[in-house]
């Protein structure tokens, strides 16, 4: 489940890059969500400087950072795409509604009151809600086109598979992080209704997903 989840996560980022480059625009894509993910990865992967887990872990962490940086570059700076980024539509105020509350939560709920642990908790809470600006954009547009819908589906699926992996760990009496689990559950719930409409649309053979 862990590996499958990670693969879905990378796939989702690559699908989004492909989506932007292939259609030569970033209509309906929230750059704020990508910026939030950048903050998530930057605060969680501080441990890159502290200890080594495995070549796999290091490689994946660096890959997430690079691909997310590339996506932000495409939307904000690349000549070909930046005019198509909907700055006005991507108006969710994340400083007030997401960054502040997540920081407060991480000061209360953490494994140890140290800088690195607080940043780690912060990244878990922020990841759970980082998708909200993208959801808000999709809600406004009412319809999600094909590749974007695959992006959302794979990104949501990744955290669901992590939940399966945590459940498997619990059944094996292995320790799990309750902060991760609670963040993961909130994150997956945020995707629940999108999953429903996605599967409905794909069963009908629709190219895009209509949201109510």
């Amino acid at each position: 489940f862990r590996i499958a989840g990670d693969m879905l996560h990378v796939a989702s980022l690559l699908i989004l890059a492909f989506r932007i480059r292939n259609s030569k625009n970033c209509v309906g894509i929230s750059c704020k969500t990508q910026e939030l993910y950048m903050i998530v990865f930057a605060t969680r992967y501080l441990d890159l400087f502290l200890y080594f887990v495995s070549l796999y872990n290091t490689f994946m962490k660096v890959a997430y950072l690079i691909i997310t940086g590339y996506l932000i570059y495409l939307m904000r700076f690349a000549k070909l795409y930046r005019q198509t980024y909907d700055v006005k539509g991507d108006s969710f105020q994340y400083w007030k509604w997401l960054l502040g509350p997540c920081f407060v939560l991480s000061m209360i709920f953490n494994v140890e009151f140290t800088f690195v642990e607080i940043m780690w908790s912060f990244s878990i809470f922020l990841e759970a809600v980082a998708f909200v600006p993208q959801l808000e954009m999709m809600r406004k547009m009412g319809r999600v086109e094909n590749l974007t819908s695959h992006y959302v589906f794979t990104l949501g699926g990744y955290r669901l598979l992590y939940i399966f992996s945590w459940v498997a760990k619990i059944m094996d009496n292995e320790p799990i992080s309750w902060i991760s689990l609670s963040g993961g559950v909130v994150q997956t719930i945020l995707y629940a209704d999108f999953f429903y409409y996605y599967i409905l649309a794909k069963l009908k053979g629709d190219k895009s997903v209509a949201l109510p």
Binding site: D6, H9, V53, M60, E112, V116, E117, S177, S180
Partner: peptide
């Protein structure tokens, strides 16, 4: 300020 817990998830 450094944590004493090693995390193996991404």
């Amino acid at each position: 300020w450094i944590s004493s817990y090693i995390k193996d998830e991404l």
